[in-house]
Every structure is written in C-alpha cells, then in structure tokens.
Amino acid sequence: MSELKEKLKTQIIEQLNLEDLTIADIKNDSPLFGDEGLGLDSIDALEFIVLLDSYYGIKIDDPAIAKEIFHSVDSMADFIESKK
C-alpha cells in the first residue's frame, strides 16, 4: 500500500505538471483540493480522471464520486485497492 502511495505521488506530480514539488511535499492524508492542501481545483480533477484511466485502467463517469476519491492520496490509494 505504501508503495502504491509513493507511486501515486510521482504520477500526480507528472500528470498535474507539478514539477516544482517532490513526493515529500505531498502528505498521505492532507487534502489535495482547496487552499488547505495543494490548491487543486475542478480542472485538476479532470487530470485525476485521466490518471486513473491511463495508469490503472479505472474509468470514472460520475464527477460527484470523483470528489470523494480524490480527497487525498490515502483515499485514492484505497479506491485503487478496492478496484483490484
């Protein structure tokens, strides 16, 4: 699981063009969206949908669910595990 989370962080940096960040800058449980976390928004949520599809073959059609899944690295990893 922790391996998956580290991999996810690398993919997030790559997919969202956050090259200024390192994986150490992204905490497992801190919110990715909003000013409290990484300051991501609805456009970045679209990138997460692409990320899940291209790296994990998981398709998300309902943006409403997407919000919960993409809350943090933890919640994303849980979701990916549950789809295995």
Partner: peptide, 13 residues
Amino acid sequence: FSELKIDYSKFYK
C-alpha cells in the same frame, strides 16, 4: 518562492 517563504500552494500549478 522558497526563499521568500510564501504560503500559496496554487503557485506550483
């Protein structure tokens, strides 16, 4: 950005 210690996470995007 780091040297100025600015707190604005949107900067990275």
